[in-house]
């Protein structure tokens, strides 16, 4: 009984919902296109659930095969994917950031970030949350199209202890 009351009456539980195009205040409700365009809810409700942004876990959607977006339209384009993690913010008061190139390069090409947003040399970039929140650096995408900056722990995802252990293990492996 209590369980039912807690799950059904929880005001914080988030049922996913998407506004229809004629109510989103961005499309003109008078536009003839609204009869033809796909509704967000129709497409997004079938994809892995999230609480933020489009309410879709986009990387999971890609990896699970729920979607299979094209990687290129020109046959000669070289599709780059890099499997490399970088440690960022290793001395801050927030948890360390383990930045995965793989998930980013599934969507993006190297040239989308390098060298104009971030230098390729590890440690050469001075990242700042102030800039990120202002739509620079990671904020070019995060907060605009990829998961928003309300989701602190998705980037600040590793305790200092875990980082230290993994770092030492990597140093050992190099020897």
């Amino acid at each position: 009984m209590l369980g039912v009351a807690v799950t059904s009456g929880n005001v914080f539980s988030q049922e996913r919902s998407w506004l229809p195009l004629n109510k989103d205040k961005v499309h003109d409700p008078m536009s003839p296109a609204l009869r033809l365009l796909q509704q967000p809810g129709e497409a997004l409700s079938k994809l892995p659930a999230d609480t933020a942004g489009n309410q879709v876990r986009w990387v999971e959607a890609l990896e699970s095969g729920a979607i299979d977006p094209r990687t290129n339209v020109f046959p000669e384009t070289k599709v780059n994917v890099l499997d490399l993690d970088n440690w960022l913010n290793t001395s801050g008061s927030m948890p360390v950031v383990k930045f995965p190139h793989r998930q980013h390069t599934l969507w993006l090409d190297c040239a989308n970030c390098h060298e104009h947003l971030f230098k390729s040399k590890a440690g050469a970039n001075k990242l700042s949350m102030l800039q990120i929140l202002n739509g620079e650096q990671c904020g070019v995408c995060h907060g605009a199209v990829s998961f928003p900056l309300t989701e602190c722990s998705r980037c600040h995802n590793t305790t200092f202890e875990e980082y230290r252990r993994e770092y030492l293990r990597a140093q050992e492996a190099k020897k």
């Binding site: 977006p69 094209r70 990687t71 290129n72 339209v73 020109f74 384009t77 599709v79 599934l106 969507w107 993006l108 090409d109 040239a111 989308n112 995408c141 199209v145």
Partner: peptide
């Protein structure tokens, strides 16, 4: 389409 199609190609 992946981001790289429009934003790179």
């Amino acid at each position: 389409f992946r981001c790289k199609v429009c934003h790179n190609e």
